[in-house]
Simulated scan of single mutants.
Amino acid sequence: MGKEKVCKYCGEKLTNNNYVCLKCGKDQRGFVKKNPTLSVFLIVFILICISIGIIFIKVNSITKNSHSGEYIGLEDFMSDFGSDISITTDELIEEYENDKDDADLNYNENFLELTGKVKKIEEVDKRTIKVELKTDKNSDYKIYCSFDKDENDHYDEIKDYTNGKEITMTGNLIREGKNLNIEYCILGDWETYYAFDNTFNIDLDLEDLLEEAKKNDKNIKLDKKNIMSFDSDILDYGYSYEEIINHISQISAGEIIITDINEKSGLKDRTVTMKINEKEINIKLDKDNFCFDENLVYQINKVLKESNSDKMLYYAYMDYDDDFGIVNIAYSTQDDINKINKILNKSNLGISQFEKEAELESI
Rank of each mutant, 00 (worst) to 15 (best):
K33G: 02
S79D: 12
I52K: 10
E113Y: 01
I52R: 02
K8P: 04
L22M: 08
C24Q: 10
F56P: 02
G25S: 06
K134G: 01
G69H: 00
R29W: 04
L22F: 14
L47Y: 09
K137W: 00
S139D: 03
I121W: 09
D27A: 05
E95I: 01
I72V: 14
I55W: 03
D136H: 08
D101I: 09
S68M: 04
L133Y: 04
Y19G: 00
S86I: 02
D80I: 06
I46D: 03
I62H: 00
I121V: 11
K100A: 14
C7P: 07
V6I: 11
E109P: 01
C7Q: 00
L14Y: 02
D104H: 05
K130I: 02
I85H: 01
K26N: 14
A103W: 05
C21F: 02
G25M: 05
L114A: 06
N98T: 09
Q28S: 02
K58I: 05
V32F: 13
I43Q: 05
K58F: 12
K26I: 08
Y19F: 14
D140K: 13
N98Q: 12
C49A: 14
Q28D: 04
L112N: 01
G116L: 08
V124M: 10
I48W: 04
C21W: 06
D90V: 06
I43E: 00
T63L: 10
I129A: 08
F45I: 08
R127H: 12
A103H: 02
C10S: 02
D101Q: 14
T128N: 15
Y107Q: 06
K119P: 01
K8Q: 12
G11K: 03
